[in-house]
Design a protein around this nucleic acid. Structure first.
Length: 303
DNA sequence: TATCCAAGGTAAGTT
DNA sequence: AACTTACCTTGGATA
């Protein structure tokens, strides 16, 4: 058993684990108490969360189990491998300077209220394939159900890992999902997203297209690149760029942000996704516009 | 108890 | 290019 703790009061801008993993950016963390994600969630809870990194991303080529919980300024972790501290820095962006990022946000009432409500919320850096598939599943779906789909996908198709007397499941690999049938995926309540997930997994498995490759492209080219995958339009592409591939300027134009634009920034509505995206990105401060998007999204959705 | 509706959109077909 | 429409599923609202 490897364990340790991180003093998050030392981080620039602090940290809030619950709002970070339950704000609809990631569907790859689970509450270990088994309670429904984002339903029984009482803010400030000290429950353990778990995530399992895919074998392909780990040194030993075994899935890596990471558990974390926050008690005030102390982020405790337990893991199946010794390097969980750096994993948490990577997965939860603990090296982002939140104070500087918040300072770059526009001085506007909606944005300031959103930042004040979720102090310490950070963006995540999910593994690319899991991020891609979970946002393909997000089309016309509620946050709690998107999370449920990912949990079922892992249980049904992912590699089981024993840790501390319990069985966890890694998120499925591209090969594992490519081998699934559409009917099998529909049985997990993916609905019309089932063929999208299977085909996208097959594309990644064949190796001709790789979601991580987008990281090396200019922002708008990266978004175009990701739309090659089946079930990925510009909005889903922006989510993967923001929540996995380090494009902190990406502002996914979902229903909540579109409503916010209509209500608060009508001059940013330029008709097309591309032009509106540029306008709201500029309004939200440019380089860290995606951080503003995430705070506003979480704020609007939870009030 | 039954019916209706919308949920972090995308693909395919028309104009 | 811009504009429609169909698409699975289900929890919660409405009648």
């Amino acid at each position: 058993m490897n364990e340790g703790a991180i003093d998050v009061d030392e981080l620039d801008g602090g940290f809030d684990l619950q709002s970070t993993v339950e704000s609809g950016q990631t569907y790859l963390w689970n509450r270990r108490d088994g309670r429904a994600y984002e339903r029984d969630g009482v803010h400030g809870g000290d429950h353990w969360y778990s995530t399992v990194l895919p074998a392909t991303a780990t040194a030993t080529n075994e899935p890596e189990v990471v558990l974390a919980r926050q008690l005030d300024g102390r982020l405790e972790w337990r893991a199946s491998t010794p390097n969980a501290h750096e994993r948490l820095v990577e997965l939860l962006r603990l090296d982002d300077d939140l104070d500087a990022i918040a300072a770059s946000a526009p001085d506007e009432p909606l944005v300031e209220r959103a930042y004040a409500s979720y102090s310490g919320m950070r963006l995540v850096r999910d593994p690319p394939f899991g991020s891609l598939v979970s946002f393909i599943c997000s089309a016309q779906m509620r946050v709690a159900r998107i999370h449920g789909m990912q949990t079922r996908l892992a249980r049904e198709y992912g590699t089981p890992v024993e840790f501390d007397g319990e069985t966890y499941h890694a998120y499925p690999t591209p090969a594992q999902l490519a081998a699934a049938t559409e009917a099998g995926l529909r049985d997990l309540s993916l609905g019309y997203r089932a063929p999208y997930v299977r085909q996208t997994a097959a594309m990644v498995e064949e190796g001709e297209v790789d979601p991580a490759h987008a990281r090396s492209l200019p922002y708008e080219d990266a978004r175009e690149y990701l739309t090659q995958f089946v079930g990925v339009g510009q909005k889903v592409a922006d989510c993967v760029l923001l929540f996995s591939l380090d494009f902190l300027q990406a502002v996914p134009l979902d229903t909540w942000i579109r409503n916010a634009i209509a209500d608060h920034y009508p001059d940013c509505d330029r008709g097309s996704y591309e032009a509106t995206s540029r306008a709201i990105r500029d309004r939200f401060g440019g380089a860290y516009a995606g951080y503003v998007q995430t705070y506003v999204f979480h704020f609007l959705r939870s009030t």
